[in-house]
């Protein structure tokens, strides 16, 4: 028995969350399935004309990614609150900031990361020009990490409430808007043949800011939620 270092603790949390996710492969696939289904709604609603779809594709893909992230964010802390793990986490003699970051990182690996990797398939379904696909994947990988961090704040604030599902959308969607603007902007720029670097740099800046600040808000939110 040796005293736990903080790094070992965070690594253990990350591994725990990833194993928990991987032991339910169906739930792992759900966000991707949701993404595919909503993408399939747009041709039905807008008409199957390839030109229309292709011109709306950057916005559509980004909005769907945003919604699927929102739906998975709600569950980050919920099962841990229900079985009492969360109160043990809050009593742990370790920085809650890093614990919150580990939880969100695991959630991103299981949702946003996979979504970013799978996004080229959905892009082809909507007829997005192949030239814009690298920009789409890169912007989604960066952007969904920001979304997961911000979504974690909403999850932490609403986890103690019985009906948090709708509320988290109302709280968090306004904060998602800058990411949507620059994420879909990056794809649009690639379509128009403009450099995408500045857009990705701004998304990376958002990511740095949210890594620095969001875990503090998550920690504060969890302390409030556990105090029932």
């Amino acid at each position: 028995m040796k005293p736990a270092s903080t790094a070992a603790f965070c690594f253990r949390l990350l591994r725990r969350q990833l194993v928990l996710g991987l032991r339910r492969p169906v739930e792992l696939g759900n966000p991707l399935l949701f993404f595919a289904m909503v993408v399939a709604l747009f041709p039905l609603g807008l008409g199957p004309a390839p030109d229309t779809l292709a011109s709306f594709a950057p916005g559509i893909l980004w909005i769907v990614a945003l919604l699927s992230n929102l739906l998975t964010s709600d569950a980050v802390f919920r099962s841990d609150l229900e079985d009492g793990s969360l109160e043990q986490l809050l009593l742990a003699p370790q920085p809650l900031y890093l614990a919150a970051l580990s939880y969100v990182f695991a959630q991103w690996l299981l949702t946003g990361f996979l979504l970013g990797l799978a996004s080229p398939v959905f892009a082809l379904m909507l007829g997005l020009a192949p030239a814009a696909i690298p920009a789409l994947a890169a912007s989604l990988l960066l952007g969904t990490a920001v979304l997961s961090l911000v979504g974690g704040i909403g999850a932490a604030l609403t986890v103690g409430l019985k009906r948090g599902g709708m509320l988290i959308s109302l709280l968090i969607l306004p904060f998602y808007m800058p990411v949507l603007i620059f994420g879909s902007g990056a794809v649009q720029a690639a379509l128009n043949g403009n450099p995408t670097g500045p857009f990705l740099a701004i998304l990376a800046a958002f990511l740095c800011l949210s890594i620095a600040l969001a875990p503090m808000a998550i920690a504060a939110g969890l302390r409030i939620s556990i105090d029932t």
């Binding site: 028995m1 040796k2 005293p3 736990a4 070992a8 603790f9 253990r12 949390l13 591994r15 725990r16 194993v19 928990l20 032991r23 339910r24 099962s79 841990d80 079985d83 793990s85 969360l86 043990q88 986490l89 009593l91 742990a92 003699p93 370790q94 614990a99």
Partner: peptide, 19 residues
């Protein structure tokens, strides 16, 4: 956690006291 075995539950416990 129902998805983890008792051994894993204790080894990866969130209370973070020691390894």
């Amino acid at each position: 956690k129902g998805l983890l075995t008792p051994r894993e539950n204790l080894a990866w416990h969130v209370a973070g006291e020691s390894s």
